[in-house]
Amino acid sequence: MMRCSVLVLLFTLASLRSLFAADLPTVDQMFTASTHPMRYAVSLPSHWSSDRKWPVIIAPAAHYGHHQETLQMLAPLCEKRKADFIIVSPVIINSDPVAKMKAYRGEVADRISSADAKLGEGVRDNSARAEFDSAGIRAIIQDVQRLYGGEDRVHIVGFSASTHVAYLFLFNHPELLKSVFINSGGYQGRGVDADHIPLLHSPERARVAVKMIVGDQDRGFQFYADNWATTKPLLIRCGHPESRLHEEIIRQGNAEKLPVGHTWFPTRLMDFVIGIERETTP
């Protein structure tokens, strides 16, 4: 009788896991944050389970509609490295025209378009866009914690235009971050009130690791390099230890044959976040 009961229990647990697994997200699915209209896609480790906490990478694409490309780039690399990350690609507004954004037709697009129009023809309201992106990503982080066991602090990565969002979180919400990866982009203060930066010289800010990376044949190389040269001292003045601020230039003819143009550097990204996880894992 005891053996039979144990077998029934094991079968029931296995069935429940199977049913739950059927509801787990895939990279081609889109979700809406429970407390905000921001859309997002999410990828879980292949052996994900609900019995532990998981590190999270927030990886917005450079432009609207490329979220699947971001997940398709990072998810296989995580599996290959046996790196247990939840990867989330939020559909940000950032610098793109909202009229073309099917995900945000209606109230959201109308509100952003109205804010843009008040500034004049062809001008975009960066503050309104930053407010939407910031609130949306924070809502998604909370959902990922609740639904998938995401950790309290995340890694946020940005490429090209989406580095604006990565910098936004670095300056405004260091308490939510383990690290920030700035891939081929520059800081222009979008959504950041330079006179009211929170958590100056705090432990929350001091523990965040930051890396800037760019290829030396990137069309924006000189701007990104010069921009980092001015942004790094600003971060130090805010309380980021210089030892936590890293930079790398991928040179033409490098031994690993990495591209040197305007591109993601996913292997460097994974090297960085895996290294930070090793630092922070007891």
Rank of each mutant, 00 (worst) to 15 (best):
L16A: 11
R17A: 14
R17V: 14
S18V: 10
S18T: 15
L19T: 10
L19D: 15
L19P: 08
L19K: 09
F20T: 06
F20W: 14
A21N: 11
A21Q: 13
A21V: 13
A21I: 14
L24Y: 05
L24F: 04
L24C: 06
P25K: 01
P25V: 01
T26G: 13
T26K: 14
T26A: 13
V27L: 10
V27Y: 00
V27I: 15
D28F: 04
D28W: 11
M30F: 12
M30L: 11
M30V: 07
M30G: 14
F31T: 05
T32Q: 15
T32P: 08
A33D: 13
A33K: 05
A33L: 09
A33W: 01
A33C: 09
A33M: 05
S34P: 03
S34A: 12
T35K: 15
T35R: 12
H36M: 06
H36F: 07
P37R: 04
P37D: 02
M38I: 11
M38L: 08
R39H: 13
R39M: 12
R39G: 06
Y40M: 08
Y40H: 07
Y40V: 06
Y40R: 00
A41R: 02
A41N: 08
V42Q: 00
V42S: 01
V42L: 06
V42A: 05
S43T: 10
S43V: 09
L44H: 01
L44I: 13
P45E: 02
P45D: 01
S46N: 15
S46V: 15
H47Y: 09
H47Q: 12
W48A: 03
W48K: 05
W48G: 03
W48S: 05
S49I: 10
S50V: 15
S50N: 15
S50C: 11
D51I: 14
D51F: 08
R52H: 06
K53H: 08
K53C: 01
K53D: 10
K53A: 08
W54M: 07
W54G: 03
W54E: 03
P55F: 00
P55V: 00
P55E: 08
P55G: 04
V56M: 07
I57M: 12
I57T: 04
I57V: 13
I57N: 03
I58Q: 00
A59T: 11
A59C: 13
A59W: 09
A59G: 07
P60N: 10
A61P: 00
A61V: 01
A61Y: 04
A61H: 02
A62F: 04
A62C: 02
H63V: 14
H63N: 15
H63K: 09
Y64T: 05
Y64P: 04
G65Q: 09
G65S: 06
G65F: 01
H66N: 11
H66T: 09
H66Q: 14
E69R: 12
T70Q: 04
L71K: 03
L71H: 04
L71G: 07
Q72V: 12
Q72N: 15
L74S: 00
L74W: 00
A75K: 07
A75I: 09
P76Y: 06
L77I: 02
L77S: 09
L77W: 02
C78K: 01
E79A: 07
E79V: 00
E79L: 01
E79C: 05
K80H: 14
R81Q: 11
R81V: 01
R81T: 02
R81H: 11
K82Y: 07
K82I: 09
A83K: 00
A83H: 03
D84T: 08
D84N: 13
D84F: 07
